[in-house]
Design a protein around this nucleic acid. Structure first.
Lengths: 342, 342
DNA sequence: GCGAGTTGCGTTACCGGTAACTTTTTTCTT
DNA sequence: AAGAAAAAAGTTACCGGTAACGCAACTCGC
């Protein structure tokens, strides 16, 4: 493995052809199975392919420019957030079943990282890109447009996408939760999340939420945005932080269920009853919610479906089928029992 | 984006060179900054690069065979298991910081999937591969050896690796947990996991665990292996299933903390006290454990560090530095308080 | 002011496949 | 059995970069 001069002993099509006593072109035809050769020749070539352990060099094929690559670049903010991990898994599975490979890009929620990654990944001539989020740097946009390849923006539905968009309207989604909680009688609400970026779906949810709360005569008395990933522990200490400064908060809306669970644990450990002493609402209907005694108030978003749909859009576009430029994946409120009943 | 004939309007080095009034070679030299050109020429070329929005085609460079690609293939069983998601994130971040790109492969814990993915990814001439697990199909092994590229096997430490291995000895790790629990006085133990595959780290843990329990005069009365991912809900219903058939189990060891948490929730909802009525032990020291009231008995494995170490090994090897072929990343028992004190 | 070294840039060939075209061989027809 | 059509196989050129080499113009020392 170490010091083999792989440059020299690498088996190329030419070597296979030579060993089989045919021309490169004939060997190429056999391997692609496109006809134009005799059975005898096929056997000769395939025998050598097995014999020599020939693996085609896809780089050469794509490079020749005759077909596009099977790479799809997929950018994801982070994998500590299990929603994104699951979306990525869904995308990769679907793409894989159509013979595509995922080139991963973790953007850490920043446009700079995204831009750098786009520049690099484009130099590999991918067949298409799937990007999380609808906000991109000006240079990224320029590169994307120049590349001429299909782009699917996911997560945050973009009504006028670069090319295609699959997701939900996070403002509306937050709004619906806000209206629901106001409807439960809450007037003094809090928010705990991690996004410190205005160009962000979670921020859009918060804005929709705030709007609905205010429309209903309530107030979001504290919006806490931690510099962390949206996981259990930030939910825990975020709750502590929020309650330390705002003792009158009646209900907290979290960026996702993982954080909400952290909040539930905090309350439990401080002897606060949910929902009697405080209401807790999450988002995303994540796996952790499936094992809790009380049904967590949340918002179901079919994120696995979202990933699949994004991959489907990409594949359809690549195979030349007509595709809708936007696809709203929808959501559904889960009333749950961690907020008081109206 | 849609119907642009990108083949024709794609900017190549030749176009840049022509526009700048120099030869391809000179333009290439300027772009690589390796000297051999005048300042005047540099400016002319770079002006055209900006003007035309030139993006180099890395495929061509690698294809020419003069340098190896910057792709690293990374295979991961699944991303539903948050440990693996975090390992992947750690690997990608580290690789990315050294200018490498991750090509993802989800193997779903099967050697067939892994083999197929290896075949495909090798055809893209990656600089190296990082594979989860130490068991590979015969054909996969052959392809890996023929490829001549660096391979890091992670997770399950392989004392005689294909090339390099980074991980821990899962048998020993399970053994330590078994010995600890026997030391706590437990004699009738259960196991709840999801691996239905003998060639698997989780299975090795179970074997080590069983061995230690038997050495200590105890017995693993039931080993439950669900066909599911190692998450919260399988932990929940797995516990239900196990307790339905084995009422005398004193303590359950889970495949990981997520499952153990599912078990904790099940017990709580059935009114069983932990650790008075039953002991619960997890594995991995996962994020969920950080917010629980009782410290979960578990095994800390520095899996983020593991991912980083794997990437470091790869990078060191690629830059020609001498590297150890195996790297044991270690683990540490967390006694916790979800098992009775000895 | 002349040969030697340096600098700047161009030319050619090549990586590993495949499209497009040409040539050779086989098969079929009458 | 000759000629035409079809099938099988070979030739050439090219994709977009870069290594290796060549060569002209300039600098420098004596």
């Amino acid at each position: 493995m170490v010091d083999k001069l792989n440059k020299n002993n690498k088996v190329s099509l030419a070597k296979v052809a030579q060993a089989a006593g045919v021309s490169k072109m004939t060997a190429s035809r056999v391997l692609r199975g496109e006809g134009g050769y005799s059975e005898k020749t096929r056997v000769k070539v395939m025998t050598q392919v097995d014999e020599l352990g020939y693996l085609p060099n896809r780089l050469a094929t794509v490079f020749a420019g005759d077909q596009s690559s099977t790479f799809i670049g997929v950018s994801i903010p982070d994998l500590g957030n299990e929603v994104f991990a699951q979306v990525l898994e869904a995308i990769d599975r679907k793409l894989g079943s159509f013979g595509h490979q995922t080139v991963l890009g973790l953007t850490q929620h920043t446009q700079e990282e995204e831009e750098n990654w786009i520049r690099t990944v484009l130099s590999w001539q991918p067949a298409g890109l799937i990007l999380t989020g609808r906000y991109h740097s000006a240079r990224a946009l320029e590169m994307l447009r120049n590349s001429g390849i299909p782009v699917v923006e996911i997560w945050d539905l973009n009504s006028s996408p670069l090319d295609m968009s699959v997701g939900i309207n996070h403002f509306d989604c937050g709004f619906e939760m806000g209206r629901f909680l106001v409807g439960c009688g809450y007037r003094s609400l809090g928010f705990v999340g991690t996004s410190h970026d205005t160009a962000n779906a979670a921020t859009a949810r918060l804005e929709g939420f705030t709007k609905a709360v205010e429309n209903g005569g309530g107030k979001v008395v504290r919006q806490l945005c931690l510099h962390d990933t949206a996981g259990f522990y930030p939910g825990f200490y975020g709750t502590e932080q929020l309650l330390a400064s705002q003792r009158d908060v009646e209900c907290i809306f979290y960026q996702n269920d993982s954080m909400a669970f952290g909040g539930l644990q905090y309350c439990d450990q401080r002897g606060m009853q949910v929902p009697d002493d405080i209401g807790i609402a999450g988002w995303g209907d994540l796996p952790v919610a499936s094992v809790l005694k009380k049904r967590l108030t949340s918002m179901h978003v079919p994120h696995i479906r979202l990933g699949q749909a994004a991959a489907e859009q990409m594949i359809a576009r690549l195979s030349g089928e007509p595709v809708a430029s936007t696809r709203d994946i929808g959501y559904r409120l889960i009333p749950g029992s961690t907020v008081r009943q109206r």
